[in-house]
Amino acid sequence: MHVDMPLEELKTYTGKSPKPKDFDEYWERALQELENQPLDYQLERVQYPSSQVDCYNLYFTGIGHAKIRCMLAKPKHIQKAGPGIVMFHGYGNSSGDWFDKVSYAALGFTVLAMDCRGQGGYSTDPLSVNGTTLRGHIIRGLDDPNPDHLYYRNVFLDTVQTARILMSMEEVDENRVGVYGVSQGGALATVCAALEPRIKEMVAAYPFLSDYQRVWEMDMASSAYEELVYYFRQFDPNHEKHEEIFNRLGYIDIQNLADRIKARVLWVTGLKDTICPPSTQFAAYNKITSNKELLLYHEYGHEYLLGLSDKAMERFSKL
């Protein structure tokens, strides 16, 4: 039983949500603003019972004076610059436990895991916007006259700054850096690889933040996307601004950035996903033009995927 289009249709689907006419200028301007952000950071040692890995909280100042916290795990004894991985977490959560970062670091990777501003971790969100902030982050800034005030614009830039900080470390070879994430984390891995062309390897599982209009038309704007329902119910019940809203969301739609990716890609989708429908994921995947591989979990949805961690490790071992 399909929860979305048949697989053959998914393989050619390229999305319904609009791409703003000034999309490229929007992101070039954003990246130019990021150039003025220093790569300075502060480290705070964390005690962890490992004879092979050192752990730290790393803090840097992001766009808008946000204090961004990352988890840094690196091998104790590094003889030469090695590979690095940037990790991103799911919606509303944090970077989680140290165990998975330490596992990679014990194998020679330097790992930097970013807490998204204003979510479940320790990163702050000082963004001030006009309009509602009810029920979630996708709609934060939708009613502000300035589209630069969209919440996810700054989170997307934080991913790039995090990757650049990792690349600047003397123990990391800037040409051997990958990105990894699931759900919102998969979206942010996609964005980071799109906006930082030096990323070499990308593993993204059932990415969020894609093809908002498709989600709406499928009547699946629940759970992760439920704030779209709240927005229209409370602030535009007659959908007078329908086209304007979905065009504005186009600035933070990962499918519109996907064609910028230069990294090797492992894209992972569960075909029973009712949280981030498969078609929304394919809308982005089908626009990737770099070396890519699609890994399908036919009987799985938005959940733990058996064997994924090992497959991700296998990909990153090629860095």
Rank of each mutant, 00 (worst) to 15 (best):
D148I: 08
D148L: 13
H149S: 10
H149D: 08
L150I: 11
Y152I: 06
Y152N: 09
R153L: 13
N154L: 13
L157R: 12
L157E: 10
D158E: 01
D158R: 02
D158H: 04
T159R: 00
T159Y: 02
T159P: 06
V160R: 02
V160N: 01
Q161I: 13
Q161C: 00
T162M: 04
A163Y: 03
R164H: 04
R164I: 03
L166C: 02
L166K: 07
M167W: 02
S168L: 01
M169W: 00
E170Y: 00
E170P: 12
E171D: 11
V172H: 04
E174C: 13
E174W: 15
E174A: 15
N175E: 15
R176C: 12
V177N: 09
G178N: 09
V179W: 12
V179Q: 01
Y180A: 07
V182F: 15
S183G: 10
S183Q: 10
Q184T: 11
Q184A: 04
G185C: 07
G186Q: 12
G186K: 04
A187R: 02
L188S: 05
L188R: 07
L188D: 08
A189K: 05
A189T: 12
T190E: 04
T190D: 08
V191H: 01
A193V: 05
A194Q: 06
A194L: 08
A194K: 07
A194T: 08
P197A: 06
P197Q: 04
R198P: 03
R198V: 08
R198I: 13
I199H: 05
K200L: 07
K200W: 06
K200Y: 03
E201Q: 15
E201K: 15
E201Y: 12
M202S: 00
M202D: 10
M202H: 07
V203P: 02
A204D: 09
A204E: 11
A205F: 01
A205V: 08
P207K: 02
P207Q: 05
P207T: 09
P207V: 06
F208N: 01
F208E: 05
L209E: 14
L209C: 14
S210E: 05
S210I: 00
D211T: 09
R214A: 12
R214I: 05
V215K: 00
V215H: 03
W216A: 00
W216L: 09
E217A: 04
E217P: 00
M218I: 10
D219Q: 15
S223C: 12
S223L: 13
S223M: 01
Y225P: 06
E226A: 15
E226G: 11
E226V: 10
E227H: 03
E227A: 04
L228A: 02
L228G: 06
L228N: 03
V229N: 12
V229E: 14
Y230F: 14
Y231H: 08
Y231D: 06
Y231T: 11
F232S: 13
R233E: 15
Q234G: 08
F235M: 11
F235L: 11
D236E: 09
D236L: 08
D236Y: 11
P237F: 13
N238D: 12
H242A: 03
E243P: 02
E244R: 11
E244Y: 13
F246P: 12
F246G: 01
N247E: 15
N247C: 14
R248C: 01
R248Y: 04
R248I: 02
L249C: 09
G250I: 07
Y251V: 12
Y251D: 06
Y251Q: 05
I252H: 00
I252E: 04
I252D: 03
D253P: 13
I254F: 06
